Amino acid sequence: MHRRAAALAVPLTAIALAVSSCGSIPEDWKTPAFLRMNEEEFDPRLPDVTGEVGEEPQITFPDAQPPEEEISGVVDKGPGENGLVGADDLLVANVVQYQWTGPGEGEEMEGQSSYETGAPDLVRMAEMPEYITDTLVSQPLGSRAVYVFPALTQEEREQAEAMGQEAPEGASVLVIDIMDRYSKGAVVPGEQTEEGGGDLPTVTQEGHSEPTIEIPDTDPPEDLEVLPLIEGQGAEVEEGQQVIAQYTGVRWEADENGGHEVFDSTWSRGGDPFDTTIGAGAVIEGWDKGMVGQKVGSRLLLVVPGDQAYGETEEEAMGGPVGTLVFVIDILGAYDNPPQPEPEELEGDGGEQAGDGAADEEAEEE
């Protein structure tokens, strides 16, 4: 459902690239500090990280030179509620990065703390390198992991800077607090109390499956229609937040065979939850208007007229589906975005202009 835009890199991804020679760590550098063979032997070379998970950590650097290999460990295990981290999960994590410059010496890197910005990172495990995910997989929510990456060589520093990444001085330390997780096929809890019907589409959905949407044999409504099928119990979605959702979309107008085939759906991509910024023009207008103010945990039926989607004609749609569109959306979560940089901090013209529409991801794949 994204409009095409310049890549919005997950901050953790950028950090991992910068501290790991642009994503390549030799096998002999990978020394997990938390051994997984039923023993919890901890590597004393790791910095001492204390404080409650979910709050800014306190860190004490060992009175020794940073190690010359990458080490990692889980320094605080969560309570084990709500399942364990899976290899394909979308994680909500608080992330802080530090520089370890010498024996007992180090400092937090400016602008590299999600606790400072008030906005957690959304981390797609399947897109992260193994030296990050190996430590996180099978850990319970509420766990805290610590990574130490050796100092970059001059060549590696030049590579990082060429990619637009800040090259840290000395070794790098990364602290990741696992706050929440969304797995493949995630849906909102509860039973549907509404199905639509009448002049609106009828929606049925069983468990963790793609919804079935039946379009009535009537003209579509002229205005945006928003009908909660499940009333969520969470906070209201705010403009500018990162929203995590499952969704399916069909056209109101039938095809030549009289059907209403799905034109875009997270379920067609294995049920991977979708994330986007809402209320800021990153998606179609009907999503921005229809989702802001709705509660997290809600399942919505959205009927979006063409003028709030991709247009009423092929020329207007520019490859997107034409006319009135119907969506069923599960709002799984909503989180604040980092504050935008001040205008004087932006370089050039601000980057590539966002493109047009929900079918962009699908078009790119094709």
Rank of each mutant, 00 (worst) to 15 (best):
E352W: 14
E116A: 15
P103I: 02
V137I: 15
T13Q: 14
M318H: 09
E110Y: 09
P103L: 00
E166Q: 13
V175T: 04
A5N: 12
F42C: 10
V326S: 04
P11G: 05
P120T: 06
V187H: 07
H260K: 06
P211Q: 05
V203K: 01
G271D: 01
A254N: 09
G240H: 04
Q99N: 12
A186C: 06
E40G: 15
E314N: 11
E39V: 15
P189I: 07
Y98S: 02
G104V: 06
V250E: 00
G348P: 05
I178F: 04
E225F: 06
P228W: 02
V283Y: 02
V262D: 05
G111K: 09
F42K: 14
E214F: 00
V250F: 00
D63C: 06
V96N: 03
M179R: 09
M1N: 08
M318S: 11
D121R: 02
H2R: 13
E41H: 13
E70H: 14
P338M: 07
L200S: 05
K289H: 11
M1P: 01
D217P: 00
P339M: 08
E107T: 07
K184Y: 11
L90Y: 03
E161L: 11
S114G: 10
L174M: 10
L332C: 05
E365G: 13
W267V: 01
A119C: 09
Q139K: 13
Q65E: 11
P57E: 00
S21N: 15
Q242R: 14
A151V: 03
T202A: 10
A317N: 06
G270I: 07
V226W: 02
A186L: 07
A282H: 14
I71Q: 00
E231L: 09
T193Y: 03
D48S: 13
A160W: 01
G185K: 00
L332G: 01
Q97A: 12
G290R: 02
P221C: 09
D48V: 10
G78M: 06
G311H: 06
T135M: 11
V75E: 00
I284S: 01
D134T: 12
G23Q: 10
G281A: 10
T153A: 08
Q340G: 10
Q294I: 01
V53T: 14
E312G: 10
S172C: 00
A167H: 07
A151H: 05
G106D: 01
E222P: 04
G240E: 02
G104P: 09
E108V: 06
S209L: 08
V292S: 04
G104R: 08
G306V: 03
N82M: 10
D180R: 08
V283G: 05
S114P: 05
E191L: 12
D360C: 12
E130W: 12
T193D: 11
E81S: 13
S143V: 06
G355I: 05
Q294D: 07
G357V: 04
A309D: 06
A14W: 04
Q65G: 04
E155W: 05
A151M: 07
L12K: 04
L122I: 11
P305V: 04
D89N: 11
D180M: 03
D219C: 08
A280E: 14
E155Y: 10
E253I: 09
